[in-house]
Write a protein that binds this DNA or RNA. Structure first.
Length: 488
RNA sequence: GUCCCCAUCGUCUAGCCAGGUCAGGACUCCAGCCUUUCAAGCUGGCAACACGGGUUCGAAUCCCGUUGGGGACGCCA
């Protein structure tokens, strides 16, 4: 029995990845199986080594260690390409020379006519001679799978049982991009087979792609594994969309930085996977793995309840540590040597006695400071406008990979110019959002020390403190934001 | 829009597959006890089977429909 988790290194280590890793690992441990880690980095533009490192770190922090890997898909291109060639030779796949413009146009039309927006299969009829000739001539193309055009795809999901879908509703999916990299569908299928994965346990968002994968298994002559689609973690707001960093802290590093214990987070995720009828809700990974059963997973999308996590975390804090142990924990969390030195550098010029330290640096040692609405005010701006400014910066920072004081300062300068606002006025509400106070340690350096996760969470809190921004308003704002961004 | 998945307290859920208990537990909230304060702890309380049909002596549980929510529809994963 072999399972895997296959995150894509395109952003912060997501708590959903931890959730899936947890289920896979628990299943593996309960049956003496092997747990494989595979990095899905076939998106050359968005994948980064930093993100990959952060994911490995986060999984290790949680104690979700892998038995094999990490494998990188980008290092397995020869295999992927040769399998594509095999499909091409067998006529199960074909080259497509359609331009992106034509595809966009076609999708727009189909959507407007409320039809299935898939590819119209224009290139599927090309003769193999013409196809080979144009490819040899260097014409840009992708490779698509030829899907069956009639009948029904009958799938088995471990949690849901049988699922049926008309084949004609399945698109001729691209499996090899113009840049020569495989898409998820191909790479995942080929690698799962090559790595002997017996159970594919992944998020529910893949359920619609299962027919494509099944077709690939068949065309490649592979025996398909057992598939199991886990419900998606949801946001805690009204619409309950799938958990996103837009609205909630989703990064595993945020949980670490905000002072949660890895055991508590893991336990919390485990509670979603396998909740006890009654009795003890605090349990270790080993206990979870011990009694692991797929039947215990409920199919409704669970809302991530931070309050319950805090309660669990509190229990770990006081039940699993004595006072001395807790002191070690706090020191480790808040005063890593490097971090402490950075804070000292900011505090030193503002310190009269060591006793000032607490007052001055307190905000760097809490998960979130209290923010008074009145303190967020900026002279000459409405509250709503202040909220918008905060939102603009939040969007800017969400895209920023390099979270250093200099880079952050650059963003503030540009935004102040673009909005015609003095840097002083622009930064004022951010001092309050970050520290809870109008007078505080230097903003940009403080933000660097806090790190992207806490900065984003605090900015969001400040926006909420000002009454928030409605969904409608957000859309309009986003347009203006793009305009401002383009201009600056 | 089309297709797929899902539906028990505000939240996580037990019960459903093998119909028959005041629908159970936990978080949150409220009250009381304990206590130098606050937490913690203890005790108690508020709170749910989305709706409509069917099958049945009997439906949260089985079937159908409606509604609601989510997901997918990319040369992203």
């Amino acid at each position: 029995m072999r399972v895997r988790v296959a995150p894509s290194p395109t952003g912060d280590p997501h708590v959903g990845t931890a959730y899936q890793a947890l289920v896979n690992l628990a299943f593996a441990r309960s049956r003496g199986g092997v747990f494989v880690l595979r990095i899905e980095d076939t998106d050359r533009a968005r994948s980064s080594l930093e993100s990959e490192a952060a994911i490995l770190d986060a999984l290790r922090w949680l104690g979700l260690d892998w038995d094999e890997g990490p494998y990188r898909q980008s290092e397995r291109l020869d295999l992927h390409r040769s399998e594509v060639d095999r499909l091409l030779a067998a006529g199960s796949a074909y080259r497509c020379f359609c331009t992106r413009e034509r595809l966009d146009e076609m999708r727009r039309e189909n959507r407007a006519r409320q039809r299935f927006p898939g590819y119209d299969r224009r290139c599927r009829g090309l003769s193999s001679e013409e196809s080979a000739r144009r490819a040899a001539a260097g014409e840009e193309h992708v490779v698509r799978v030829a899907m069956p055009t009639e009948g029904e795809c009958v799938m088995q999901d471990l949690l849901r049982g049988e699922i049926r879908r008309e084949w004609e509703l399945i698109d001729d999916q691209v499996i090899l991009k113009a840049d020569g990299y495989p898409t998820y569908h191909l790479a995942c299928t080929v690698d799962d087979h090559a790595m002997g994965i017996s159970h594919v346990i992944r998020g529910e968002e893949w359920i619609n792609s299962l027919p494509k994968h099944l077709r690939l298994y068949q065309a490649l002559g592979y025996e398909p594994p057992t598939f199991c689609h886990l419900p998606l973690l949801r946001n805690n707001d009204a619409n309950r969309s799938k958990l996103s960093k837009r609205r909630n802290p989703t990064s595993i590093t945020w949980f670490r930085d905000a002072g949660f214990l890895p055991q508590a987070l893991l336990n919390f995720l485990g509670l979603i996977v396998s909740s006890r009828a009654e009795g003890e809700e605090k349990f270790s990974f080993d206990q979870l793995a011990d009694g692991f059963r797929f039947e215990d997973i409920s199919l409704g999308g669970p809302v991530f309840d931070l309050d319950k996590l805090r309660w669990l975390n509190a229990r770990y804090l006081r039940e699993d540590h004595d006072a001395a142990g807790l002191a070690d924990l706090v020191r480790e969390w808040s005063m890593g040597r490097e971090r402490l030195a950075a804070i000292a550098a900011l505090a030193q010029p503002r310190l009269e006695t060591l006793g000032d330290w607490g007052r001055l640096t307190n905000f760097l040692f809490v998960d979130a400071p209290e923010v008074e609405r009145a303190k967020l005010a900026v002279k000459g701006l409405e509250e709503a406008q202040v909220a918008e400014v905060l939102q603009f910066m939040l969007w800017t920072l969400e895209r920023e990979q390099e979270f250093t004081a200099d880079v952050i300062q650059g963003h503030f300068r540009r935004l102040s110019e673009a909005l015609g606002l003095s840097l002083r006025d622009l930064t004022r509400p951010f001092y309050v959002a970050m520290s809870g106070q109008t007078a505080s340690l230097p903003l940009f350096q403080s933000m660097e020390i806090l790190g992207p996760d806490l900065v984003r969470a605090r900015t969001r809190r400040a926006i909420d403190a000002l009454g928030g921004i409605s969904g409608k308003r957000t859309k309009k704002l986003q347009k203006r934001f793009e305009a401002v961004r383009a201009a600056s």
